[in-house]
């Protein structure tokens, strides 16, 4: 089939059916956008994991008495706790943070907020900050060693806090993928329907092709190309949507915490790669749907 004929048939097919074409493109785009968002979230979760694993500590907060009376961890209670922790397997460095140091950090962390003004050094506990060498067994070993010991108020595993963030992001990812799946079903059905309508509106052309003995390939190709073009456009729109999402939403909302290294920023290269991936995925899925539809429902 000659390229001129093909492009004429395809463009006339897409134009004649413009409302369906637009619906097909948009559904495909939204579906792929959800897929892309889900992929980026997965990527971000991995990045966060890598970012935090080394930094996570277990904080052993000391009681009020100990905190106030022992500003440099030389008193018997704190000193003993420190020794116990340092000899616990799986534990690396143990660092003491006094009330005053905690207060300084607190002021920095909440600078400009009213809570920073009302805080007093006495109201914050001093802590033993435990770095782990064994991320798997370490936390339990620390708990077993110092839980309920004199001078210990609370054991805070930062992992628990981060786990909540992971759970949340995982939930968002699942929602994105579920949405993508539902949208994908809708998109596939729409593509299939559009191909059928397109074949019906061109039944005279198709009939002529069949009668004069055009090959099956020649007869089918315009429909497949139509579907594929719509899929590619849908994929491109989804890519544009992802980029827009990064610049207009993610960077805006998460930019500040990303800069302070609490969560990793969503990298532009990741977004570009994902966007670039969505375009061929859109084309291939639409083309395959078109092919199966022609096989099953349309005599061409």
């Amino acid at each position: 089939m000659r390229a001129a004929l093909l492009s004429r048939e395809v463009s006339s097919g897409l134009r004649r059916n413009i409302t369906m074409t637009v619906a097909m493109v948009l559904t495909t785009a939204v579906s792929l956008l959800s897929v892309g968002a889900g992929l980026l979230i997965v990527r971000t979760i991995d990045d966060i994991g890598a970012l935090y694993t080394d930094r996570l500590e277990i904080q052993v907060a000391l009681t009020q008495d100990t905190s106030s009376n022992d500003p440099d961890c030389t008193g018997p209670i704190c000193f003993r706790l420190r020794n116990v922790l340092e000899s616990t397997p799986g534990v690396g460095e143990v660092r003491f943070e006094s009330q005053q140091e905690a207060y300084t950090r607190f002021k920095e962390l909440f600078a400009g907020q009213s809570v920073a003004d009302v805080a007093r050094p006495q109201s914050l506990p001093s802590t033993l900050r435990v770095q782990l060498t064994d991320q798997a067994a370490g936390p339990d070993a620390v708990r077993a060693a110092v839980a309920n010991q004199v001078g210990v108020r609370e054991i805070i595993d930062q992992r628990d806090v981060v786990a909540k963030l992971f759970d949340f992001l995982g939930g968002v990812r699942n929602v994105a993928f579920a949405l993508a799946l539902v949208q994908a079903v809708a998109a596939v059905l729409l593509i299939s329907n559009t191909v059928q309508v397109s074949a019906f509106t061109r039944r005279t052309e198709v009939g002529v092709m069949r009668l004069v003995g055009a090959t099956r390939w020649t007869t089918q190709l315009p429909f497949l190309v139509e579907a594929t073009v719509a899929g590619l456009i849908g994929g491109a729109l989804a890519g544009v949507g992802l980029l827009a999402g990064k610049f207009l939403v993610v960077d805006d909302l998460l930019g500040a915490i990303a800069q302070s290294n609490v969560i990793p920023p969503v990298q532009l290269t990741d977004v570009l790669l994902t966007s670039a991936l969505l375009v061929p995925v859109g084309g291939v899925v639409a083309g395959l749907t078109g092919y199966v539809t022609l096989r099953l429902y349309v005599k061409v």
């Binding site: 005279t204 002529v208 069949r210 009668l211 004069v212 003995g213 090959t215 099956r216």
Partner: peptide, 23 residues
């Protein structure tokens, strides 16, 4: 076989009551 059907149809001309022209 199905892929030879076009070859068959190229040997047969066909006209109908309703002409079937592209308007």
């Amino acid at each position: 076989p199905r892929r030879k059907v076009p070859k068959l149809r190229q040997r047969i001309g066909c006209v109908f009551q309703d002409f079937r022209l592209l308007a």
